[in-house]
Lab assay of single mutants.
Amino acid sequence: RTVITEEFKVPDKMVGFIIGRGGEQISRIQAESGCKIQIASESSGIPERPCVLTGTPESIEQAKRLLGQIVDRCRN
């Protein structure tokens, strides 16, 4: 099985929602997708915060879908 790493950007102001209380939301996304997610600790003042996704191509797609759902929910 091929493990790859891909960068994905999330809106900086939504990082708190993505991580969740005590990290529970990000842990759930990682468990559900099987993908490791590392969010940069600093956005360096830019509106997007880079995340590094590591896993199989399928797990990365699943993680991006779950992250996208959270971002959409927070935008509305």
Rank of each mutant, 00 (worst) to 15 (best):
D12H: 05
Q30H: 03
E32I: 11
C74W: 13
S27I: 04
F8C: 02
S44D: 14
I18R: 02
T56W: 02
Q69L: 10
S33H: 01
P57E: 11
I4D: 06
T5L: 02
R75G: 15
E42Y: 08
V15K: 06
E7M: 06
I29Y: 01
G23Y: 04
E61S: 12
Q25P: 04
G20K: 05
R75A: 15
G55V: 00
R28H: 06
E7L: 11
T54R: 13
V3M: 12
N76E: 13
E24Y: 15
C74Y: 06
E58T: 14
C51M: 09
G55E: 00
R21A: 14
Q69W: 03
P50G: 13
T56D: 04
A31R: 14
E32S: 07
C35A: 12
A40C: 13
I39D: 01
V15C: 06
F8H: 04
R65M: 14
V71T: 12
D72W: 06
Q25L: 05
T54A: 06
T54E: 09
E6Y: 05
E6V: 10
S43H: 06
C35V: 05
G16M: 06
E58G: 11
P57Y: 05
L53W: 00
P47A: 12
E42Q: 12
E7G: 08
F8E: 02
A31S: 12
E48T: 06
V52S: 14
I19H: 04
A63Y: 00
E7Y: 12
C74G: 15
E61Y: 07
N76V: 12
G20L: 02
C35K: 01
E48P: 03
A31E: 15
E7I: 11
E58K: 15
K9S: 15
K9L: 13
S41P: 12
A31H: 15
R1D: 15
C51H: 02
E48H: 06
I37C: 03
S44R: 11
Q62M: 13
T54Q: 13
F17M: 14
K9Y: 06
G55H: 00
Q30V: 05
G16S: 12
G45L: 06
I4S: 05
I19F: 09
R28G: 05
R1P: 03
R75N: 06
K13E: 12
E42R: 14
I26D: 01
I39P: 02
E6R: 07
I39N: 01
S27P: 03
V3E: 12
G22M: 06
I26R: 03
A63W: 00
R75S: 13
R49P: 04
S41N: 15
T2I: 15
I26H: 05
S33P: 01
G22N: 14
P57I: 05
A31Y: 08
F17K: 15
E32M: 11
Q25N: 11
S41V: 08
I29T: 03
G68W: 09
T5D: 03
E7S: 13
Q25S: 12
K36E: 13
R65N: 15
L53H: 00
Q25D: 08
P47R: 09
G20N: 04
S33C: 08
I37L: 05
I26S: 02
S59P: 00
E7C: 05
G55I: 00
S44N: 10
P11H: 03
I26W: 04
V3A: 09
R65V: 14
V10H: 02
F17H: 12
T54W: 03
Q69N: 10
S33K: 00
R1G: 11
Q38I: 07
S44I: 09
P11Y: 02
K9W: 10
I37M: 03
K64Y: 01
R28V: 03
P11T: 05
I60L: 06
I19R: 11
P47I: 13
Q62S: 13
G45E: 10
E24S: 15
T56C: 07
P57V: 10
P47M: 09
I37R: 01
R1F: 10
E24V: 12
E24T: 14
K9E: 11
N76P: 14
L66V: 06
R73D: 15
A31I: 13
Q25W: 03
I39V: 12
T56L: 05
G23K: 08
V3G: 04
E42C: 06
C35H: 01
E24N: 15
E32R: 11
Q30M: 07
G68T: 10
V3T: 07
S44K: 14
E6A: 09
G55K: 00
T56Y: 10
G68V: 13
R65W: 09
P50H: 11
I60T: 03
C74K: 12
P50V: 12
S44G: 13
L67G: 00
P50D: 08
S27H: 06
E48I: 04
P57Q: 13
I37W: 00
I29G: 01
E24F: 11
G34L: 03
I39S: 02
V3C: 08
R75D: 08
K13S: 13
P11Q: 03
M14Q: 03
I19G: 07
D72V: 07
D72K: 11
L53M: 05
F17R: 13
R73Q: 12
K13H: 15
A63E: 00
T2K: 14
R65C: 07
A40F: 15
P57S: 06
G45I: 05
I60Q: 00
A40M: 09
A63K: 00
I26P: 01
V71S: 06
F17C: 08
I18Q: 03
R28K: 11
S59F: 00
P50F: 06
R1M: 15
